[in-house]
Structure formats: structure tokens, C-alpha cells
């Protein structure tokens, strides 16, 4: 049992935001799954349920996913299933079980900036904008590059629909496992994207390699291999309980090359 001193059920985002600013230690409650894993007592918990943040709006050009949409609702949404061959749904389906995903939210999964995240890595394949209550729109990449905690409410994320082929690979011991490393590779409107997560650091794009790939005239199998090598040279991988750096390097090399081969259709 966790200890919550004060639980705030609010009627509006405005009120939620006000309380968030008022109390230094206030925490927003998304799905609450991660919050429960902590052992420290929580002084103020502000529930985001019932504020209308749980809808997915699809337009011709974009998908807007409310912060309180469950991971499972996102995974099974027809529009998400169509994006890039369904790689996002595939990635989401690998986060614990269905019952868990019915509770954990998109907002909590992004705001947690979890280094092991299986959502952030594939999301980096797309142009994603976070809609904050106070700060307004912010690019996902900007958000991830920021340090420190943002005292704001994420309302929704907007994914631009673009022609894209993508793959996601989670390397783990069982389906209920954290990623030892994860890799997403895509070709979006003719340009390559590569992201690596659970390095064990948080997911990042291999920007220099992506830029290099754009300069290669007619890529071959050797190009994919080289790209894999380059990713390992440019992205910081490390050692933790789950794997040694050298093994992560081997995995990243292999899956980047395979991913590029797959998405390029060669």
C-alpha cells in the first residue's frame, strides 16, 4: 500500500494546473502504475481522470492522442495500426500485459521519460508534438533533450501522418521484461530515421547517421552494415545489470542494419 496524504479530484485542467503549481511536491496521476512503484509517501496527488484527456482524434493529417488514453487504447486504434505498418502498435503490445496496458497512460509514459521506454523510441520515428497546458506545443525531441522536471500538464500528443515504413525491435528476455535495448528504424518521406532506447539511457535519434544515410546515393547491404557501425560509434551505450556495453553494441549494430534493410525494402 502506498501512502497518499491528499488526493485531489479536480473538475478542470485549470484547477489541476493551479494545484500543481501550488504544492511543491504535487504529482499528477496518469495511470498511476509507475507512481505506485515508489515507496515514498506522496503528499499531494492530482487525478487527471475525468478531464476529457482520454480521446484519440484522427484527422487527415494527424492523430491527436489524449494524455489519459491508455496504452492499450492507443495500441488498438485503427489509425495507429496503420501508421508505418503498425510498428507503434507492435511496440506497445510488448509492454507488459493487456490488463496493465488498460491502465497505464500515454501521458505517464511520456512524462516519465523512462530510459527503458518502448514507446519513446518508436515515437521518435514520427513528427510528434506534445501539447502542454501551460507551455503549449513542444516537439518530442525538444522535450527529451530537456533536463529537469517540467511542472506542466501534458494534454495530448499530436502525431503527423506521413508516408513511412518503420520497424521496432525490443530485445528482452521475456515479453514482461524491460528492454535490454530497443531500436526503431524508419524511412519517412524518403529519409531515414534511427532511434535507440534503453541504452540504458533514454531514447535518442542517431542524427548524424541519419544525415549520412541521406547522402548515400544507392545504398546496399554494406551501407546498412556501415550505418549500424556508425550508430554504435555515435550513440552512447552503457553497461548495467541487464547487459554489458559490448553486448548492447552488438545488438544495436545488428538491428539497425536489419531494420534499414527491412524498411528500405531491399
Amino acid at each position: 500500500m502506498i501512502h497518499i496524504e491528499q488526493y485531489h479530484k479536480v473538475d478542470s485542467l485549470e484547477e489541476a494546473y493551479r494545484l500543481l503549481q501550488k504544492y511543491e511536491t504535487a504529482v499528477l496521476l496518469g495511470g498511476g502504475a509507475w507512481i505506485r512503484t515508489g515507496s515514498k509517501p506522496l503528499e499531494h496527488v492530482i487525478d487527471l481522470k475525468g478531464l476529457g484527456l482520454d480521446t484519440i482524434i484522427e484527422t487527415k493529417d494527424s492523430l491527436s492522442i489524449g494524455a489519459m488514453v491508455s496504452l492499450r487504447a492507443m495500441e488498438t486504434h485503427a489509425g495507429i495500426r496503420q501508421l508505418g505498418g503498425g510498428f507503434l502498435s507492435e511496440a506497445l503490445s510488448q509492454i507488459l500485459g493487456v490488463a496493465f496496458r488498460n491502465t497505464a497512460t500515454v501521458g505517464g509514459s511520456i512524462m516519465g521519460k523512462f530510459s527503458f521506454s518502448d514507446l519513446l523510441t518508436p515515437l521518435l520515428m514520427l513528427d510528434v508534438t506534445l501539447q502542454f497546458y501551460d507551455a503549449g506545443p513542444m516537439r518530442l525531441t525538444t522535450f527529451l533533450a530537456q533536463r529537469g522536471r517540467l511542472k506542466d500538464i501534458l494534454q495530448a500528443i499530436t502525431i503527423e501522418k506521413k508516408a513511412c515504413r518503420a520497424m521496432f525491435k525490443k530485445v528482452a528476455n521475456t515479453a514482461l521484461d524491460f528492454s535490454i535495448v530497443n531500436v526503431a528504424v524508419a524511412i519517412v518521406e524518403g529519409r531515414y530515421r534511427i532511434a535507440v532506447g534503453a541504452r540504458p539511457g533514454t531514447a535518442i535519434l542517431a542524427e548524424s547517421v541519419m544525415a549520412w544515410l541521406d547522402t548515400v546515393e544507392s545504398p546496399t547491404e554494406a551501407t546498412w552494415k556501415e550505418a549500424g557501425e556508425k550508430v554504435v560509434e555515435t550513440i552512447k551505450l552503457g553497461t548495467n545489470q541487464r547487459a554489458h556495453e559490448s553486448y548492447r553494441q552488438q545488438l544495436v549494430k545488428t538491428y539497425v542494419a536489419r531494420g534499414l534493410k527491412e524498411v528500405s525494402g531491399s
Partner: peptide, 24 residues
Amino acid sequence: VKYTAQGRLISNDFLSYKIPTQRS
């Protein structure tokens, strides 16, 4: 099974100690 150098068991939950699942 993983211990710290001081002898604390780290693999002490189902997150860090994986048992087979449906698809293993």
C-alpha cells in the same frame, strides 16, 4: 540471480527476475 557487491539481492521482483511467460 543478481547480488550487489555488498550482498543485497537485486533480482528481487518479477521486473528484475524473469520467469517464463506464455510466449517463452
